[in-house]
Design a protein around this nucleic acid. Sequence first.
DNA 1: CGCACTCTTGATGGTCATCAAGACGGGTGG
DNA 2: CCACCCGTCTTGATGACCATCAAGAGTGCG
Lengths: 239, 239
Amino acid sequence: MIERHLARLRSRHEVSEADVALIRGAIGEMRECPAGKTIIEAGKRLESSTLLIDGLMCRYKDMRDGQRQIAEIHVPGDFLDLHSYTLKQLDHNVLSLTPCRVVVLAHADIRRITRASEQLAFLYWFSTNLDASIHREWVVSLGRRDALSRAAALFCELQARLEIVGLAGPTGFDLALNQIELAECLGLTSVHVNRTLKQLRERALVTFRQGRVTIHDLPGLRRVAEFDPAYLYLGKQPG
Amino acid sequence: MIERHLARLRSRHEVSEADVALIRGAIGEMRECPAGKTIIEAGKRLESSTLLIDGLMCRYKDMRDGQRQIAEIHVPGDFLDLHSYTLKQLDHNVLSLTPCRVVVLAHADIRRITRASEQLAFLYWFSTNLDASIHREWVVSLGRRDALSRAAALFCELQARLEIVGLAGPTGFDLALNQIELAECLGLTSVHVNRTLKQLRERALVTFRQGRVTIHDLPGLRRVAEFDPAYLYLGKQPG
DNA sequence: CGCACTCTTGATGGTCATCAAGACGGGTGG
DNA sequence: CCACCCGTCTTGATGACCATCAAGAGTGCG
């Protein structure tokens, strides 16, 4: 059930069997969730954190005029709102982009297991710091990349993150988003995303069609994106 | 020495005298740092975290073509790189924007005091989550606000954050940045920042001149910025 | 079969980048 | 003391990138 979460943790750090047992002991029952549902609302008091088992979700904020900005895409194995453990309420919403399955961990249980294991406390702090690192890279993308390299950077990030949990290879992955949602990630309009995707296709870098990303030239894509995976802290980490 | 750091912590949570003593016992000697110095470089192994006592610093990344994007401005009382405690190395650089004073805490000491005090562990985890929240707001700003409201939002954020540590009032604050650095925060060119500042001045919202931000109409500024301070988690937090 | 949603493409316009040049102010050295 | 220089600010002219508006095509579903 939480295999992808464990794969994610273990891709970067050692996780003992005792720690795995603690995590397993803390998780609640599995819940299903349809696509397009805001499962966490900004400003609401939270008493638990949610782990994504299957599907895609995102963190977003709405503007007054109805525009939306997505701040992070979540893939299976990610916590959606581990930061609510310290923040108690969130500054953003969380939305399911596809039908999803999740499990819930009560904050009391997170407290219990991070008390019981210094390593788990460390891993989960790391995990929220990794979210922050991803946010920073998006700041750079939105601030300094043009539409083409911005889109390329997003595909590179998702390829790398999905690969960790076994959901992507070097030649592609499933990504059940539409162009509107892509635009909400990239700070563009869906019309311009459409033209940008066309360019990426014509340059034989990547094709995005019907919820599937097909990568024709990963090195080329990374070059266009100016993609440096350092911000994802891939591979075994020190400490 | 760390009064502003304590003020920052205490503005949101209770901090016992014992915890203050732990913090005081962990801080190293004060260091001076000239303006324009990159004090932390991406990718370098770090064994300590740095607390900003005085001055302004920022987190930034450089692009291949020499462009730069600033991801966060740090004000006195902020940790610059508390996240390096779990990440061990950073994905971004840290630069002094003005002459600064800092103190250093060895990661070993952070470990010691967060072990000794569950509350401190909580506060410092919260602190890194607050950085992430600020990053998210910048993502929204860069993705969905135009130049005018983006600049307004930055001034609103800094006013609120500096007020916590006694360095801003409702009518203004010192901000020793030039228009180039402002542009690097806002994802714009310095030329366009100049025109944007002119507009903010002409609309009688805010004047930025010679390192000083004078706010003429804070409610109006916040309206233009679409500023919702919730993301700063101001005031006493639950838990 | 018709409807809704998404994708696609064209036409036009606005925001912001780029290039360029001059003004201003502070610091330095002759 | 003043000329000079440098960094910063300011403004104008032009153009690129992306938004907006609009319409038609494709696809899946009831």
